[in-house]
Design a binder for these strands. Structure first.
Lengths: 347, 347
DNA sequence: CGTTAGCACTCTATCTCTCTGAGTGCTAAT
DNA sequence: ATTAGCACTCAGAGAGATAGAGTGCTAACG
């Protein structure tokens, strides 16, 4: 693999991304920074095809990058564009400032991304995993009916109705509320575990068996808290995208379960994943560009786009990168990005 | 329009629904309960075409029902199949029992419908519109931070965080909570209005200006309650349906706004609507089969399918009908359907 | 020895032409 | 009023024919 071959591969990807048509040797030879004849390029392209970086839709057509080709392009060959200052300013305006609620911040980023990229945006909220329980309330709302309210230091609120087998007296409710406050107040959401609740069930059962549904209710709510919420917005953009199978897109929109887990397990820094390398999003020929934002130095959530594999990586990656950095800063109460830019990482 | 012509129309619809091909006079003449020659049928079909009940894709093809033809068929000619007991039992199992949460009940019905009909299912949740406010709580959760909790008699719970400009004293909070309880407790969700809240803002402002964000918060929550949520599931089925225009389906999936209103304004009982008669769902050649389920005797939500106009009405209508009846029963805590079957109504 | 010009070859996409058969409308007979 | 018979129509399938983009290979070149 000499330098020229890499240059040709990059040119093929660029050209294919630009036009959407299979790229022939002639059109490559006419590019500015290529100074060899089409015959030479043909030879090189044949090698690139043998190595699995390019492929032909049919014998007499031009070449198209394989996912392996894209991978090499993204990881080694491409240099992302610089984001001009005015673009940054525009993004800043769309995002909001440090007083914007976190949820809205992420939402705004998603909107910005769909508008700019014409792809679907994927965001996960800043999971309250790293926050602590600040309040637990149990409110009687009817005959043997109670509502549990769980509030975290980051402002997440979860509620759940709960039916008991008996009505609780004022003292019993007081006892329970106190017990719970004592055991959960200030506990990190991430530290909440099934075992912990099992112990609590055992403890309150000694006092009164019928309280255990309440503990179980709280346990379920805490699971909700630990779970990160994934939102895909602008997914209609994918439907108007020719190279994606509409059936697969619709199926994906309806159940996007696998993605959440994948995002959580991803490395930090900008990531590009292809559906062919990964079975969490089964849209053929699609790619996922994501990055994680941080809050208080810890990874809090993800942000990115899903689009066709043939997407302008050079252009989009800087947007995703800038948005995650900016969101991280805003969530920490800074108005400007402080730390150094992150590197592109292998998957 | 003599009897034989109606019989022929019904036969054409049945045959077209079965095969999907334009129906010729010969295939009709070969049916069991038709005892006239193809020439006679040809004459009758020509009349039916002139009257607008049938049409020809092209001169030398068979006939296809127009939407007017379907309309007559559905309203007058067709006799829906009876749902066999085992099918009913299967549906019962898929739905759940009276302890199944309402939301899940409706969800399960949607899943059942998509599986059985291979069409998209449309459901609206049991809007809490007809229930009353049973409890309003304001809970301090931090510096100038409060959580509002709104609970209805039907068990819907909504919450919202609210930031005030000052911290409230214990008395102030008590005053406010009492005031709200007095004004909202027992009020029907449907009766809550902007003006009502405007008045309340004015009243509490006299006492303390900074309380108004709380009232506004409650107002927003009440709007949430009034809103009915429309869910379309299994819409990928529509994409694999040849007679529907994929573009239109995609557009519909993107914004299904009009449908919600239409469902709300619909009559009770089984309804069949065609896109050509209606502009709330602009998928050409599609039809909507819905019925409303009831809760406590009042219409609570809708349930049905969207599919091609060429759909097996005889088969599907009983399913939709049974499901709405069963859901109505389950929501009222009965395990079996009690009241008489409803009639088919004109739109 | 790498590079290039030249050329034969391949394969898709498109157009036209023809043929077939299902289905019709009309007419005359029953 | 119904039916058999017949000429007519038209979409769709299949068969060439053609054009054009792009390739692989070979032989010549610096």
């Amino acid at each position: 693999m000499d330098d020229r071959k890499l240059k040709i591969l990059a040119a093929v990807v660029d050209e294919y991304v630009r036009t959407g048509e299979p790229v022939g040797s002639k059109s490559i030879s006419q590019l500015e920074n290529i100074n060899v004849s089409s015959a030479t390029i043909r030879n090189d392209m044949a090698v690139l095809e043998q190595l699995g970086y390019l492929e032909q839709p049919h014998t007499s057509a031009g070449r198209v990058p394989t996912f392996k080709g894209y991978r090499l392009y993204i990881d080694e060959l491409m240099t992302p564009h610089d984001l001009p200052e005015e673009e940054k300013r525009m993004l800043d305006e769309m995002l909001g400032d440090k007083d914007t609620p976190e949820e809205l911040l992420v939402q705004n980023a998603a909107t910005a991304l769909t508008e700019i990229t014409h792809c679907a945006a994927v965001v996960t909220n800043a999971a309250p995993r790293f926050s602590v329980i600040s309040k637990v309330e149990v409110i009687p709302t009817g005959k043997r009916l109670y509502v549990i309210l769980l509030i975290t230091s980051s402002g997440s609120i979860k509620n759940k109705a709960c039916r008991l087998e008996f009505d609780l007296s004022h003292e019993q409710l007081d006892f329970f509320t106190h017990y719970i406050e004592e055991n959960l107040s200030g506990v990190s959401v991430d530290d909440l575990s099934e075992e912990m609740f099992d112990k609590m069930v055992a403890a309150v059962s000694a006092y009164m068996v019928s309280l255990s549904p309440l503990v179980k209710g709280i346990c379920e709510l805490s699971e909700d808290l630990r779970q990160q919420e994934l939102t895909v917005s602008g997914s209609e953009k994918l439907l108007s995208c020719e190279e994606l199978d509409k059936m697969e897109v619709v199926k994906f929109i309806e159940h996007k379960d696998g993605l959440s887990e994948m995002l959580e397990n991803a490395f930090s820094g900008i990531q590009v994943k292809f559906s062919s390398e990964n079975d969490s999003f089964a849209i053929g020929n699609s790619s996922l560009i994501v990055s994680k934002y941080r809050k208080g130095g810890k990874e809090a959530g993800s942000l990115g786009i899903i689009g066709p594999m043939r997407v302008d990586y050079k252009k989009i990656i800087p947007y995703v990168e800038y948005l995650t950095q900016k969101i991280s800063a805003l969530m920490d109460g800074d108005d400007d990005i402080i730390n150094a830019p992150s590197d592109i990482q292998e998957p």
